[in-house]
Design a protein around this nucleic acid. Sequence first.
DNA 1: TCCATATATATACGTGCATATGTAAATGCT
DNA 2: AGCATTTACATATGCACGTATATATATGGA
Lengths: 159, 159
Amino acid sequence: MDLDVLSTPGHLISLAARGFARLSEARLKPLGFGVGHLPVLVALRDGKASTQRDLARFAKVEQPPMAQMLARMERDGLIRRVPDPADGRSSRITLTPAAEARLPDAIAVLIRGNCDVLRGFTDAEAGLLAALLTRLIANLDRVATVEASADGSGPNTDD
Amino acid sequence: MDLDVLSTPGHLISLAARGFARLSEARLKPLGFGVGHLPVLVALRDGKASTQRDLARFAKVEQPPMAQMLARMERDGLIRRVPDPADGRSSRITLTPAAEARLPDAIAVLIRGNCDVLRGFTDAEAGLLAALLTRLIANLDRVATVEASADGSGPNTDD
DNA sequence: TCCATATATATACGTGCATATGTAAATGCT
DNA sequence: AGCATTTACATATGCACGTATATATATGGA
């Protein structure tokens, strides 16, 4: 039961994620993007979100990290923020033309990375991996919800 | 080809890794451990490594992050460092009794997390996921090696 | 209308990871 | 032996992520 811990899906996923992030980061850097930018860029381009809050939800990160990322992306000329005329607390976020122009290349880079990493996989195997991961993520979300409602911060644990 | 990027194994793996890390972090915190500590703890307990360099290699992280983690682990009473009498540059790193005593609980926590996350998976599916991830990681290592030798820092790109 | 609450964002701080670079000890070659 | 190189580690800096908390604007109920 000892070495086993480092052979579990949990640890393998962590290794895979760090490796893939490192690879993608290196390839995206020449384009002026980072790996974490992509959900934001895609959401903005597709109109799936335009506020910090919605972007955080879309990317499944907390609000402060999203705020920091948006600050860096604004600093680097990838996005613009204009105060929302209807809500003094909020800003509408838009892609800059430069970011939009380079986005297809960034997506292509990530697609290529996926192909590289799935070398030797049949289409069925690649699909199976995605399906298994999707189920695992669903379990993760479920467990996170349960833990959150049982961590003492919620008023009713007997829902 | 647009929404697709966020449905690729690369992105799914990233999501799964963050979710699993968050879950494990929350569960390990009461034991005084962090997720990243486990490879170090296991390697030290099993005698797989005892220097900073070997620990970094074992955990597959770079040397500076490992140095920082060891500094925090030493600060938190998980490890001790004694100067290597045979090599003035190096230190031998050992687990403290307290850390060793709590390690089995930490491993149990991670095993449980894996079980939670694999809920609904057959043994065959869990094994398949691990096998696919292992192959993916091998591809990742291969690509990383190729990119490293082609990034301009090497003297000969025509090996 | 006014105040309590909810919401959107900002800030502070800690961790994990990366790269780039500095320092000191060991090693090797002449 | 002496000096260049390699090695082990330390430090500086930056990004991504998390929690905890502050601030400002909306909003809703008495």
